[in-house]
């Protein structure tokens, strides 16, 4: 039985799509058959980050409306064997995502996949609600700043009250906190909330902390999931997060400011 994971946040620009790309790639790299779905109809980005934008023929909405089969719309990743991408439509509205349609597509995917990762659009409207409705687990992506934390709190409330699991009275959606764009230097200077602050406010288990890094931006621009940058701190932090998602015990890294020498400061950002 496939596990459905939604990557959500409420607030925009916090790193949902970056996270969806890396988590799905990390799961697939471990041999799980994984599909990542772009729910951000109208603003499709996931295919850019996954570097498959030139291979999009049919999309999620086409499948929902019966204009294409799943096999026609699924794009096979070129780097990781067991990874597939279901892109969003650029030309439709979010209302094209009907609850019945989404359910049908997810059920069909669940027959063959181990993990279904849903990349939610920002906001708390229809698109975001469709992305989280069928979730078994939720990765709540949060930046260490007050407004992002507030929006994450809002989306946690929606997960508790408007997901299928809550409506059917099943076990609640399993919640994970993923803190992105974390900059220990700025935390030390009091310019950012600390991991402890965010954990205390949101009161859900911490899945990982992704350090702020130029690597993330570069990787996005090159259409490369950050997790594949094995030598980078951000890539390793995502790999740790995937491990924890699968139940492994891993110590949190990159939480404190690195003591950089003069040369490393000059030559490495």
């Amino acid at each position: 039985m496939a596990k459905i994971i939604v990557v959500t946040s409420g607030k925009g620009g916090v790193g949902k799509t970056t996270t969806s790309a890396s988590i799905s790639t990390g799961l697939a790299r471990r041999g799980f058959k994984t599909v990542v779905i772009d729910f951000d109809v109208g603003l499709r980005n996931l295919d850019l980050i996954m570097n498959c934008e030139r291979r999009v023929v049919y999309d999620f909405v086409n499948v929902i409306q019966g204009e294409a089969s799943l096999n026609q719309a699924l794009i096979k990743d070129k780097r990781v064997e067991t990874l597939y991408i279901l892109p969003a439509s650029q030309t439709r509205e979010k209302e094209a995502l009907t609850q019945e349609g989404v359910e049908r597509v997810l059920n069909e995917l669940a027959e063959t996949f181990d993990y279904i990762v849903c990349d939610s659009p920002a906001g708390i409207e229809h698109g975001a609600q469709m992305a989280l409705y069928y979730a078994d687990e939720a990765i709540v992506v949060t930046n260490p700043e007050v407004s992002s934390v507030r929006d994450s709190d809002r989306i946690l409330g929606i997960l508790q009250s408007k997901s299928r699991r809550s409506e059917m009275g099943l076990d609640p959606v399993k919640e994970h906190l993923l803190l992105t764009r974390y900059n220990p230097d700025r935390v030390d200077r009091g310019e950012m909330l600390s991991v402890g602050d965010v954990e205390e406010i949101l009161a859900i288990p911490l899945l990982g902390v992704i350090p702020e890094s130029q690597i993330v931006l570069n990787a996005s621009n090159q259409g490369m999931p950050v997790i594949l940058e094995n030598d980078s701190d951000a890539g390793q932090a995502y790999e740790d997060a995937v491990g924890r998602l699968l139940g492994e015990e891993r110590e949190h890294r990159f939480l404190t400011a690195a003591k950089k020498g003069f040369f490393s400061r000059m030559f490495k950002g």
Partner: peptide, 26 residues
């Protein structure tokens, strides 16, 4: 459970006892 931002809890007749945080915006 925590009362999250955007949620509203109402005890129309008696007391309300909450064994969790009441978040900003709730």
């Amino acid at each position: 459970q925590p009362v999250r931002s955007g949620q509203q809890v109402y005890a129309p007749e008696g007391d309300l006892i909450i064994l969790a945080p009441v978040q900003a915006g709730a």
